[in-house]
Amino acid sequence: MMLGTIASGLARQQASGVATLVSANFVTGTYSVAGVAATAADIVDQPGLITANGLEVPGWTSGAVIEYVGDALAALLMMEWTIVIEYESLWNTGQDVILCIANGDGSQFFEMHRSQFSNRRMFVTETGDSEYRETIDLDQHNAGLHRIAVTSSAARLSLSVDGGTVISDTSAMDYSGLTRALIGGYFDNETENEFYLRSITVYAAQDDSLLPTLSA
């Protein structure tokens, strides 16, 4: 299943009022791409790290960055979506790198992380060829379960955390050559904090008004 299949599957779902590109619940063990059942190995490159608590992202280990693969990766690289991620933070110190999408040399990228500083704010930033935009949830997000909804499109970057108010940056963004989607760390293949990724759902881009409901 490649991009053409994703597009046709999305068209079918949009017709019925649902537009889900990727759905992966690492706790219940249910996975799909464009509405077609899949396996964990169709979503991530290290399915052996899945536990009863979700996908265990190792902390501070070389070569352990987890990557999205196949059609799940292709869907993420489109960069015209709303993504909902539920994860369990294990620490009140250090940085949780929840998602990084990048081109080959790391000069263009999307980044979702919880700050390593004591304020523990949730950041989503995007860097293009000559563009930069950012959304920051200023609340303190301690260890525990968190649900994050983000919309990335050419015209806006919007964020809601744990049902909170939408923060949006309407600067324009133009990506090219994105190749990787990483969990737990950046392009140097070294993870930051350990955490559990419980689920990820990727939708066609949704209206900002829906993000607090999706993140609640």
Rank of each mutant, 00 (worst) to 15 (best):
S152G: 03
S153D: 02
L99I: 10
G185C: 14
D137I: 03
M122F: 15
V69R: 08
D96F: 04
Q13E: 09
G144K: 05
S32L: 02
A155S: 14
G17Q: 05
Q13F: 07
A19H: 03
R198N: 15
V57C: 00
S158P: 02
I50A: 04
I83F: 12
E80F: 01
G17R: 03
S153G: 03
Q108F: 06
L159E: 01
F195V: 04
V161K: 03
S23G: 02
V166A: 09
R133M: 02
M122S: 09
T213K: 06
F117I: 07
R114H: 09
L90C: 08
V166Y: 04
S209G: 09
L182T: 09
H141V: 03
L3F: 13
V57S: 00
G17P: 01
V27M: 03
D169V: 00
R156L: 01
A102T: 09
F195R: 11
G59H: 09
L145M: 12
A181C: 12
A155F: 00
S176D: 12
L159W: 00
V161E: 05
Q13P: 05
F123G: 11
G17N: 14
P47I: 07
H146V: 02
I167P: 00
D207I: 10
L77S: 04
S209E: 09
W81F: 10
V202I: 15
R156V: 00
D207E: 15
V150W: 00
P47H: 11
S32C: 01
S176W: 11
A24L: 05
E190N: 13
A149V: 05
D169M: 04
L178K: 01
M78W: 06
Y175Q: 03
F109G: 12
S62Y: 04
A52P: 13
F117G: 15
T82K: 11
Q95G: 09
A19N: 08
V65Q: 02
P47S: 10
A154K: 00
V27C: 05
R147Q: 05
A155K: 00
L210R: 11
T39N: 12
T213L: 11
S215P: 10
D208E: 14
L49A: 07
A205V: 12
